[in-house]
Design a protein around this nucleic acid. Structure first.
Lengths: 182, 182
DNA sequence: TTTAAGATAGTAACCACTTACTAACTTGTT
DNA sequence: AACAAGTTAGTAAGTGGTTACTATCTTAAA
């Protein structure tokens, strides 16, 4: 997993995988048909182990805007901060055009978009938010956290020091909610 | 360029490059010391050919918020839409840890952050914007366009149909300016 | 005795890169 | 103008090392 996240599919050799796992290459090919199915198994595992409970359903039911947006941003930022390898894996998969990336995308990311879009749409109906393109705003908000971590973890851009995840999340939420307020 | 953008450094072979260029592999190695320096030359070229005039200096001088933000979003979205290979190249470079990616980053992206951050800071001083973290907001705004294109070009996520670049840019600007207004 | 878990030692294809060569073009001298 | 001398642009045919993958052997437990 670490090797694929670091070097991508093409950049990772079965030899290095075997070495790192402390077994022979032959054993790898006894267990997995080929390199690609080993890779797929890793992505499958990564998907299954990421907790599904990113969605703040109860806060959404309470119409607690602050909590809804803050939870999403904080959970996303924290999980990418804790383990950037999933993000790297996904980026590589997207660039290298593996179908599995699409599956994850469909299963997790698009679902999150829909959840947020639905919430925003509801709040617009309730006249709590002004009428905006709910789908664009939902994606934009999710994108804030992703882009922040892309900068920090992939391109090594260190945002202003002494600025932790909670503060960043707060800025995202603050900007977004101000932008949505009537 | 197209091959590196499509398959990354590790995924592109010198044989395929030569084939595509219609020359022999030997000629490649006569002109470039090795595969890496060929890659560097390509990134250098890509950098030099991207127009520097993304920065709406005059709109900033006029304090035309709408124009400042709209120009940045529109130019970024349009250039990535027209030629996604630069984005792919940059993402691969970041993931594969080439120093050149950092150089581009430093030269172009960070400069854009600084420009926008400076503008936002000025407008806060002028009491036109409320006091926010200018650096975070600047990065966030740039990130909206990047993330939008990441979704669309890398992960194949088609945002709501019949929604063109101008409309997306407008949503970004609208949300951001509303969020910044006092 | 069977079977599973593992290793050794390959294999053909492919990788970045080199050698050794030719043909075409410049250039300076007569 | 003629032409040797040198340079440039190009290639065919390799090189050794690496790659994904395999055929076959070894060991230990049931």
């Amino acid at each position: 997993m670490d090797l694929f996240a670091r070097h991508g599919f093409a950049g990772t050799t079965t030899q290095k995988i075997a070495q790192r796992a402390g077994v022979s290459e032959a054993l790898l090919f006894r267990i997995f048909r080929n390199k690609r199915s080993l890779y797929s198994a890793i992505i499958d595992l990564k998907i299954s182990e990421t907790g599904e409970d990113l969605f703040p359903h109860e806060a959404a039911a309470r119409n607690d805007d602050q909590a809804v947006f803050n939870t999403i941003a904080t959970v996303m930022l924290a999980s990418m901060e804790r383990d950037p390898s999933f993000m790297r894996l996904m980026l590589y998969s997207g660039l290298e055009r593996h179908q599995l990336a699409e599956m994850v995308y469909e299963a997790r990311v698009v679902k999150l978009f829909s959840f947020l879009e639905g919430y925003i749409r509801k709040r617009i109906r309730q006249k709590a938010f002004r009428p905006v393109r709910a789908d664009v705003v939902a994606r934009t908000f999710v994108g804030m956290s992703v882009y922040h971590m892309l900068n920090s973890k992939i391109f090594g851009y260190q945002a202003s020091r002494h600025l932790d995840i909670e503060q960043v999340a707060e800025s995202f939420v603050d900007l977004t909610l101000q932008g949505l307020k009537r």
